[in-house]
Design a protein around this nucleic acid. Sequence first.
RNA 1: GGGCAGGUGCCAGAGUGGACAAUUGGGCCUGGCUGUAAACCAGGUGCCGUAAGGCUUCGGUGGUUCGAAUCCGCCCCUGCCCA
Length: 438
Amino acid sequence: MTATTEHDAAQLARDAGANPVDYLRARGYVYAITDEAGLRRAFEEGTVTAYVGFDPTAPSLHVGHLLSIMMLASLQRFGHRPIALGGGGTALVGDPSGKTSTRAVLSEETIQANLRAILPQFNRFLDFEGGRFGDNPPALLMNNAEWLLPLRYIEFLRDIGRHFSVNEMLAAETYRQRLESGAGLNFVEFNYRIVQAYDFLHLYRVIGCRLQMGGSDQWGNIVAGVDLIRRVEGGEAFGLVCPLLTTSSGQKMGKTESGAVWLDASLTTPYDYFQYWINVEDEDVERLLRLYTFLPEERIAELTSVSGAALREAKRVLAYETTKLTHGEEAAREADAAARALFGRHQDTDALLADASIPTATISAADVEAGLSIADVFVRAGLCSSKGEARRLASQGGLSIDGQRVDDADALFRPQREATLLRVGKKRYKRLIVEEAS
RNA sequence: GGGCAGGUGCCAGAGUGGACAAUUGGGCCUGGCUGUAAACCAGGUGCCGUAAGGCUUCGGUGGUUCGAAUCCGCCCCUGCCCA
């Protein structure tokens, strides 16, 4: 496995005197910038404070948020100040961007709970102490509920609302789509843009934040903030958005059949996280290495100069590096070891069964003795959702135990030893441990 | 507030008293070929059951009927038009 570079790509670029804009562009993060020349100048003139908003609609961030996080992390390596803004207030409003229908309204308690779970996840990516990358200032965590909830309606309408043209907003892609598609748009959602713009204004006023970043679906909202700052304060602020990533086959990044790929280890295990990345398509590896790791350009070029099966090494590095960033080096090493053991050329069942890094389920010895069918066991291990599915898979040749195909899912499960290797399809493995009941 | 049209499986969308666990397409899953890739080909895709069969499902609820996703009442939700 690659030795970790002392200096990552962003720091190298900084040492070489590059403007962060150039780095972000070279890495593929830039989809659009409101005023590129102005932003470059701002970066040259001093420390820029930049923020990205994250709506706490779930108890964890997921891979879809990763690009924005990487942008913040990159800027910090250039000595600028990132702010991760938790949308404790905006989540109550609900962003209609890219949604085809109104999102279910979350309760305030849920949102607060989600926020508490999400904020620590930034720790691995951002430095909240300061100085980890030279003279960088500490990153900040903020929650817009703090200033949005106390807002008074009439005042807000008078001071902020007046700056927004309804005509303009109706013409905006986000809202137009919803209106044209007949999916509907309620007043609360219609206000999302205004509230988000206000966030930017607030951060500009309070800590001089001058840059907001996000996905390209946020462009309109970000521009609205930039405009608001100019109108209200006569200030200069910037927006930068990254492309909305899809895989070569058109899938949204970070989405799988079974849902989002979470950054929380209890929702998506490091093993599964690693597997997500190592399973990317050939055409995507290079782009993803640039976006989701800090590997230097030369290393990426070296890894992706090959084609065909040799690209697997690049994917392994991608998986390792991304897992390391999200879950730490230890977890990355384990996930990598498990992957090698399970998918390596020579499968050694005994070694696999002893390997704790492989996803594991347990079952009590008493249950086994009472008589469990193979289908039952696969269901209990979480590999099948029902016995019917297990039967179906078995009849299609999709189940195996210790490398042996299962023909009859209804046969009694008779483990040879306390550990058994279950497999569904080509890729889903689980180690099953029979435990003496306690 | 009034009028009209709707709410079906992961999604889209047929069905409009029995032949419906529900056509079809997409997605997804499995097998084959492979490199834990793509493309391609084949099969599968509610739950229980070896099977026969049973059970639960078509916004909610209460009816009509031997029988309802399909008919009727009430309620909830969505869209369009009018106010």
